[in-house]
Computed example of a mutant assay.
Amino acid sequence: MQSKELLLESFDRLPGLVREALDGLDAAQLQRRPGGNGNSIAWLIWHTGRVEDAQVASAAGLEQVWTAEGFVKRFGLPLVERDTGYGHSSEQVDAVRAPRELLQEYYEAVHRQTAKVLEDIADPDLDRVVDRHWNPPVTLGVRLVSILGDCLQHIGQAAYAKGLHGGTAGAGGA
């Protein structure tokens, strides 16, 4: 298996996990915050898409799906256009409201762009430095693994929160 195939296999699992986390939830369940101050499922899935979108687009020199495909307007959130959710206050978490269909549609559009980027990479590309703000500088390979880990963590949190609402966490839950 080539690195590209391994990355595609890994990232290809995410849309199904997002779908499982969102399946069957109503608007109130999407907005409920575990413990009253945890992140809502809507925020977690939105943030997952925003982080993957922003970081993959930046590393690949592409426009984010968020703006390129008009999702920023469709969501209509009271946030700045480039917001990804990092450092959000409690009020900002509450402000992220969207129907599950829109959350799913956005994540799937992000995934399509990620998959296209991954289709076009070769092993030497993974050593290309994409962020010099860190020591050592971050390579494309390290960034992709970081994105994948972040996405898995947040989707897992959404599945856990769904279980708290009395829903099922999906096939991955034990």
Rank of each mutant, 00 (worst) to 15 (best):
N135T: 14
G156I: 04
V93Q: 09
G170T: 12
D53R: 00
E108M: 05
Q55N: 10
Y106G: 04
A57S: 15
N39C: 06
L144R: 00
T67L: 04
Q153H: 14
L152F: 15
T67E: 12
F11L: 05
A109R: 02
W134D: 07
A68W: 04
Q153E: 14
G85L: 09
A98V: 14
Q64I: 03
T114A: 10
L62E: 15
R112C: 09
S90Q: 14
L152V: 12
L152G: 04
F71L: 04
Q64A: 11
L7E: 03
G35R: 05
P78Y: 11
L22S: 06
W46E: 03
L8R: 14
G36V: 07
Q64T: 14
L140G: 02
S40K: 07
H165L: 14
V96I: 14
L8P: 00
A122V: 13
R100F: 04
V96G: 02
D12W: 02
K4H: 05
T114P: 00
R19F: 09
Q2R: 12
D12P: 00
R143A: 13
D23I: 03
E119N: 08
G38W: 09
Q31K: 12
G141Q: 11
L79F: 03
V138T: 13
W43S: 00
A28C: 02
G172Y: 13
V96D: 07
A98M: 13
G35M: 05
T114E: 08
G172L: 14
T139S: 14
L118H: 01
L126C: 07
L44C: 06
P136A: 07
Q104F: 10
P15Y: 11
V65G: 00
A109L: 05
R132K: 14
D127R: 08
L79T: 02
D125M: 05
A59M: 05
L14I: 15
S58P: 04
H165I: 12
V18G: 01
E69T: 09
V145F: 09
T67H: 02
P137K: 03
H165C: 09
L79M: 10
Y86D: 07
V80D: 15
G166T: 09
V51E: 03
P124H: 13
R74S: 09
P15N: 07
W134K: 05
I155C: 01
E63N: 10
Q2C: 06
A57V: 07
